[in-house]
Simulated scan of single mutants.
Amino acid sequence: MLKTLMLILLIALIASLFGGLNFLVKDLGGNNKKRLLYALGLRVTLAVMLIGTIVYGAYTGQIKSQAPWDKQLHPENVAPSIPTAPAAPKP
């Protein structure tokens, strides 16, 4: 559910980005420059919502990192290694 919400927010963010680009090109010399500002405000709001959703998911544990460098932070997620036999002592 949370990943679906994040995907929807990301798609809406990208759509808002292209909508702002459309307003920038169409309203190049016109008087309706407020549409570009509204698109920017919507984009910032969507970005804050997306970051908030990511932080919430990481805090509750619904989103887990699978980065290789994160295994040191969470050793319980690393598969146990096969124990090796001790080396024979040298005479």
Rank of each mutant, 00 (worst) to 15 (best):
M1R: 02
M1H: 10
M1P: 05
M1N: 03
L2C: 02
K3V: 10
T4E: 15
T4F: 12
L5I: 04
M6Q: 14
M6H: 02
L7G: 12
L7S: 14
L7Q: 14
I8E: 12
I8N: 11
I8W: 06
L9A: 02
L10V: 01
L10C: 09
I11T: 14
A12Y: 11
A12N: 13
A12D: 10
L13D: 05
I14R: 11
A15E: 06
A15Y: 04
S16W: 03
S16M: 13
S16E: 11
F18S: 08
F18R: 01
F18D: 02
G19D: 07
G19N: 10
G19F: 12
G20K: 10
L21W: 09
L21S: 06
L21E: 04
N22I: 14
N22F: 15
F23M: 05
L24C: 03
V25N: 04
K26S: 11
K26Y: 09
D27G: 04
G29T: 03
G29Q: 09
G29S: 11
G30A: 03
N31H: 11
N31P: 05
N32C: 02
N32E: 10
K33L: 11
K33D: 07
K34W: 15
L36C: 01
L37K: 04
L37C: 01
Y38P: 00
Y38R: 04
Y38F: 06
Y38D: 08
A39L: 00
A39V: 00
A39R: 00
A39E: 07
L40W: 07
L40Y: 07
L40P: 00
G41F: 12
G41V: 03
R43H: 14
V44W: 11
T45K: 06
T45P: 00
T45V: 12
T45L: 15
L46P: 02
M49E: 05
M49G: 11
M49L: 15
L50Q: 00
L50G: 01
G52C: 06
T53N: 07
T53A: 15
I54N: 00
I54K: 05
I54H: 08
I54L: 15
V55C: 01
Y56C: 00
Y56P: 00
G57E: 03
A58E: 10
T60Y: 02
G61P: 01
G61V: 02
Q62P: 01
I63P: 00
K64A: 15
S65P: 04
S65N: 11
S65M: 05
Q66T: 07
A67H: 09
P68C: 02
P68F: 08
W69Y: 13
D70S: 13
D70H: 13
D70A: 15
D70L: 02
K71V: 06
K71A: 14
Q72S: 14
Q72A: 15
L73H: 09
P75Q: 07
P75R: 11
E76V: 03
E76I: 02
N77P: 01
N77H: 13
N77V: 06
V78C: 05
V78L: 13
A79M: 08
A79L: 15
A79N: 07
A79P: 01
P80E: 09
P80F: 09
P80V: 02
P80K: 12
S81D: 07
I82N: 04
P83K: 13
T84F: 14
T84E: 15
P86K: 13
A87V: 04
A87R: 08
P89Y: 08
P89M: 06
K90Q: 10
P91T: 01
P91M: 04
P91C: 03
